[in-house]
């Protein structure tokens, strides 16, 4: 099963999104990581890297990001790992994460989960 790392500036936001995803797909490996090493709002290279390790499997890891440094720092972690099974996706953080987590529980591959998350960019809410 594809695993997920949810990277937000805020640990609370990341955990909230994780909760929303697990409500529908409790069996999927999802790590929520947010904030700086000292617990403030922001991004931590080390935390992101450690979270990837915790959900890593042969099926791969999809990393979801909110904005700014979450995105840039995740990009650096992924470049440094150089593992094609660890990728990130550009999508709305909440909607994309929930959709992709649910698709993983239905057996999607890493690339399929990424495509599902990307679809959330186009979906109109009303």
């Amino acid at each position: 099963m594809v695993g997920f790392v949810l990277v937000s500036h805020s640990q609370k936001v990341a955990e909230g999104v994780r909760e929303l995803g697990l409500m529908m797909a409790p069996d999927v490996p999802v790590e929520a990581t947010g904030g700086t090493d000292d617990g403030g709002l922001g991004t931590s290279y080390e935390k992101i890297s450690a979270a990837i390790d915790r959900v890593y499997s042969e099926d791969g890891v999809l990393v979801m990001v909110d904005m700014g440094s979450s995105c840039m720092t995740t990009e650096m972690v992924i470049e440094d790992r150089g593992d094609p099974k660890i990728i990130m996706v550009d999508c709305p953080f909440v909607e994309g994460s929930v959709a992709a987590i649910v698709s993983s529980s239905c057996g999607s591959s890493l690339q399929e989960a990424k495509a599902v998350a990307e679809e959330a960019r186009e979906e109109k809410k009303f």
Partner: peptide
């Protein structure tokens, strides 16, 4: 800088 800054200036100046 990347590991300690925590904001956009971290990955930017770090890189």
């Amino acid at each position: 800088i990347v590991s300690a800054v925590g904001g956009s200036s971290g990955p930017l100046y770090g890189t």
